[in-house]
Design a protein around this nucleic acid. Structure first.
Lengths: 223, 223, 223, 223
DNA sequence: TATGAATGAGTGTTCATTCAT
DNA sequence: TATGAATGAACACTCATTCAT
């Protein structure tokens, strides 16, 4: 029982001019969102910024909600496509190599336009409230799952779904939080190393507790 | 150039009755925020829910912003105090034991009132926008730093600040995301195990890689 | 299954000042409706005319619809009360006397403020569209029915309900149309006579048609 | 100071195709008016329903107002023509026969498309507001007047104009109100009888007050 | 001639905040 | 101190109409 089709578009632009208008509006939305945040971003303001009239805005987008949703979708679709494109050549790489590359890519993407990423990120709860299922998260999840599945036997975790949940969310959160709280980390190669260490340390089988016998106490402490 | 003092309180309640009013308002704010979200939570509505007049509300809080800030502060102060209280007896425990205990505690706290946690979490960007520095995050950071510092020598990471950043944010994000996306995980003991594995795997020294010598480059690449 | 309670009031005014505001708004509504008609009567315009802010308007009335409904109700309640008051002393009067008096009263009422009557009359379809059942029409119907019932035996019509429908609507329509199309009739005593003749001629038993007997069919056809 | 010529048409369609377009628009207007009412009937919506562009609509009609006026005119012209056609063969019939036939016809016409009749009826005040004189009412009036004039000597009323006003408006109102409030009456042959009784009772000379003499007082009372 | 993209004034309504009582 | 009536700027959104193509 689907609630309603994603109300992000009202009608497809037929003429070339219309497509341009449509794009201008979306771009302006991003700009205004950046400058003023969601609340302060009025549709009139956005239209003005786009150099069109409010009427035109509502010709292509059914509501402010829909407009923002459309922007979000565009953004996430691109992000996901990039991610997938980056993932393909890494399929055959050793895990550590691939992991570092992926993390680096995630950071690069966010570094491109940190404010936009941040703003859209903060918009996500609202989207959920609007009843939009987050198909992009699901696709990302499936992508990572497919990437991990072939090597899962050699890794420590036994619950693939949970492992993907842990990895995806931890990495995403770290990269995102860095944008906001520690932008310097984004430029710091050792940050990539640490995030990779987190991911790889999570997946790596625990060390066969070797030779010299230890008391339980020692074993626990030493880790 | 100090922005302005945190605008959370207009004036301290002197009389007992006033304190009660103040509490009632804060409680009502939480209730309304839960039910309706931030936008739909009007000050009139909150006052009504608290059983006082809007006028009274504005006697104790200078603005809606201030009201929400006060609630947030109360909430975070409590959370931090709890965390600190839980941390003390763990100082002498082996790391894995302590880590599991801490993670369990974080989850428990969120499980208590997931919706409130979620709502307040989603309010944080707005706080930042209001120019409030997040002193609680800083204190949490210092707490964990102090907890980790004595054992840091035996652990893998070499940058303590970055390690704390990584751990705090990864754990927090996982627990928080689980509230929203996978509430079932909150009841699942194996989720605690996985989050602990993530943290401990991150801190654990890499296994002494035996025999054949490698170049630094190689070492970095392999897992 | 009643759709919703008549949405005419938001909250009752407690203080004296509030009651005054409320009245001022209703009065202003009538004034603006008169001048500009329903569509052109914006709520901001009405508030201005009432000398209050829009906000106050919406404190007492939940919507433009509700505001107009309230005005209509006030108006019709008064009209009906007047009608009932006029009807009581006529109960014992001979029918023709009573009928003329009633018609005269209906005309008088409309003559008092013809434009307002007209505007509100034209608003009625919209009310129906809003799903408001017209309780005043029903009460009027019952009133007239009760007035007619005791003498119904001596009258021609055999279906009391239909007779009331015919009388009420014919008289009302004539008086109303006269307001719009022939205001001069409202001042013309012979118009009262004619409307009364219409009503009485309708109720009066057909003259005993003398001599040659006829079939039922024939009787229906002849005059 | 002539207001302006009836703004119902912008220019007469010359080509056949143009006439078809014009008709399509008018038909669509009726359809949309039926479905959505006047306010909700936007010109874009109407154009869409007609399968043409808004631009084309404005090529044939100067405004929404004009469009609706044109529809109204078409509709009333037809109604009047029908009425006139029905009237001709009745000229030589006895009054009661003719009256019943006419009333029956009025009801039939409304029964055909009750919603459209209702919608257009409710639009009439707006037309008046637009400054359009209602030439169809006038023609109807003249038609009925001409019908009644030859027999007027034998009837009770002494003011022909007023009698026509009373008859036309009473019959019209009853039939129209029945459409809205008592659609069952439209199917009820006895309703025709009652309306006819109303009209004929109005026209019929008062019964020759027979034999036993009465005081004026008595006469009035007795009816 | 037909199209449909573009316009923008104008609408109903909300809500944080003030201040007379 | 407490009240709650009053405020009014601001918002999302519509729709009759125009005009470049």
């Amino acid at each position: 029982m689907p609630r309603r089709p994603p109300p992000s578009r009202r009608r497809a632009p037929r003429q070339e001019r219309a497509q341009a208008t449509c794009d201008a509006i979306l771009t302006a939305t991003a700009r205004v969102l950046l400058k003023d945040g969601y609340e302060a971003a009025s549709t009139n303001r956005i239209a003005q910024e786009a150099g069109v009239s409010v009427g035109s805005l509502y010709q292509y987008f059914p509501s402010k909600e829909g407009l923002v949703t459309a922007l979000m979708e565009q953004h996430r679709a691109r992000g996901l496509a990039d991610f997938e494109a980056g993932l393909v050549p890494l399929a055959s790489q050793p895990l550590p190599v691939a992991m570092r590359a992926l993390i680096r890519q995630v950071i690069m993407v966010k570094r491109e336009n940190p404010r936009l990423h941040q703003v859209l990120h903060e918009l996500m709860p609202r989207m959920r409230q609007w009843g939009l299922s987050d198909i992009y998260s699901q696709r990302l999840f499936r992508l990572v799952r497919a990437f991990l599945a072939p090597r899962f036997e050699e890794l420590r975790p036994r619950n693939l779904d949970m492992a993907v949940f842990v990895l995806v969310n931890a990495v995403e959160a770290l990269c995102h939080t860095a944008v906001t709280d520690r932008p310097d980390y984004l430029e710091d190669e050792s940050f990539v190393e640490e995030v990779a260490a987190l991911a790889l340390g999570y997946l790596r089988p625990e060390p066969a507790t070797a030779a010299p016998r230890r008391t339980a106490r020692e074993r626990v402490v030493r880790m």
